[in-house]
Nucleic acid binder design. Structure first.
Lengths: 199, 199, 199, 199
DNA sequence: GATGAATGAGTATTCATTCAT
DNA sequence: GATGAATGAATACTCATTCAT
């Protein structure tokens, strides 16, 4: 039982890396079993189909990222920082896939979209809580919080996904984030420092 | 000359519809030629490859949509309406592809993304002009116009692409659009009526 | 393991016969699998590509022929007979492919050449040994043995490949063989009897 | 009439070059008409089929080479030099196809063989005359001249076709040529100088 | 738990040839 | 003489999936 589970994890890890580096469509079952050193039959003993495996790989990633986001939720940091922290935590963790450029390359769009969609659905409730915390504390002032949170995610996805962004993009992003939640002007300026530090 | 051109157009139209309804990847060359009632060779007489055909199909769509958007640019309507009009014009025209749900279904993501990217690049300059018109007229008040325009497009794409949106989504969209360009509150409220009328 | 190997051998045998009778280029993968009664996938399970299969077929033939030639090398027969025997052993064994005319028909030239080149490279060293044996025994008298051996092979290939040869061709071949190695006149006359017997 | 002939010649020339540089099989009719700047139909107006065109291209080459060889036949040079001259004249004239390596590359084998076969048939009678001249003059002494001439051609083809030859190969070739025709030892040594000069 | 031989529908692409205009 | 649109059989190769052992 344990052994089988470990084997399955191993396969998921291998597939995860291959899907990211070569794309789901361009990774054949043969590629995976060769990399894993197992037989065809063994693969189908653990997974019903290639597509089902993709779902599991995605689920695995989501869980990990949501876990990190949840941790931030209860951390003792100011609300604005929490928001930014959660958003940052759902990025594909630059350290675990500096593989190539990867996720936003055309051959990966499908997996990318699937992940994004499911991730957004899971992250929205978390962020809603944080923003509510903010409105209660009087730092934010807005209605329709779930919808606003969703937009923030859409904008941040776009900003960080694409092949690079300028200082002006960041300026506008900060401005609009403040206005989105009815925060005081310049109260989210710290984002700029974060980004510059990350570079 | 004329004859060949017409045939090619016809093929592009057929492929366009099939790509949208079944997805590019799921449409085989065989599907296309069967639908068109031509031989394999004829297909390859007009197109170097399936992928090159996709490029032509996309180019065709883009041209059409940009054409409509440009027309609006010089129309005698108020600036806010121009903006909304241009954004609406680049949607895949509900009347010409009510086919299924289509463009945003997973199998179409690739084509969808390709189109979106190229469309955004072409539409941004148009919208920038309109927004500048607005700032000069004193209706808008903002800096970094290209970046703001880009964000507006990202938001509207998201809003209308996904599987439906609520009244609250629209409210937030309107609110944020006004703030994005420094417009007066409620000055973009007319969007709501437009959307309700379209339903 | 055994099972797969046998299957592969079987496929190689079938392909070998088809390549010879119809030519490599004119034998499609479909032809082969139909003759073998297997599915496309099975074919590609055993062979990476059609071309790689050709290499294996050729390798198989070469091995067999070189094996026969090596056997003669250590047989207890006079040197001149050894030479002739080795040359004869590398012919495509009239009994196993009287199929049509085959190897030297234009459509087979490619395979033919590939085989010839590789065969010559392997046979030259064997013959060199025999000729050296002959010079040591005083029956032959010549320098540059490898080069002479090569020429002998070229001549014999030409003589036996082409569509038939006359008595005169044989006379000249015998004469020149003797002179090539500095053998006594008429010492290779036995070749004529061999050929006549074989007819 | 004249015009059409010229057009045809032009096409033959173009095809000749392409066949040599890319191989007959790898040159498509489309390649030829594109290079010639004509339409498909025009091609088939001049040639029944691609294969028939190949025959004409080959015929063209043969005629040219045989022409050169015939000229040498009646030139006022010693018999041995005539022989070598004729053999040299049927090589693919290094100046007219230094294109790549060309004729003996695998993709060209088919055309190569076709040419060789037809060329040999035409050259043999010419060389026979020269050798007879030589026997009458007492420089040569041999029977079965046509067969011997054929062998000489086979040997020279092999020597010069292959990817390079050594000094030893030349030594043996000279030796065997002398013996083939019953010439005096060293009487053909001049070949070595010719080859060295040509290098 | 694990193997690996077998499947077969599916795919894009090539190319010599024809023929109405 | 010349065009170029149309043909369609042929080709090599892919790959997720199955199943008897």
């Amino acid at each position: 039982m344990k052994k089988g589970e470990r084997r399955k994890q191993e396969l998921l890890d291998i597939a995860y890396r291959m899907f990211i580096s070569k794309g789901y469509e361009n990774t054949s079952v043969d590629d995976i079993i060769e990399a894993a050193g197992i037989a065809k039959g063994t693969y189908y003993y653990y997974f019903e189909s290639k597509e089902q495996m993709l779902e599991e790989v995605i689920g695995m990633m989501i869980d990990k990222e949501i876990g990190e986001a949840s941790a931030i939720l209860s951390a003792p940091v100011p609300v604005p920082q929490k928001i930014v922290g959660i958003i940052a935590s759902i990025r594909p963790a630059p350290d675990e896939e500096p593989i190539e450029g990867a996720l936003m390359r055309p051959e990966n769009i499908i997996m990318h979209q699937k992940i994004k969609r499911r991730l957004v659905d899971k992250v929205v409730p978390l962020l809603v809580k944080v923003v509510e915390e903010g409105t209660e504390a009087g730092i934010f002032n807005c209605d329709n919080i779930p919808e606003r949170v969703r937009m923030l995610l859409v904008l941040s996805n776009d900003l960080f996904d694409e092949y690079g962004f300028s200082d002006r993009d960041v300026d506008v992003f900060i401005d609009i984030t403040e206005k989105l939640f009815g925060a005081e002007e310049h109260s989210m300026d710290f984002i700029r420092q974060l980004i510059n530090a990350g570079e």
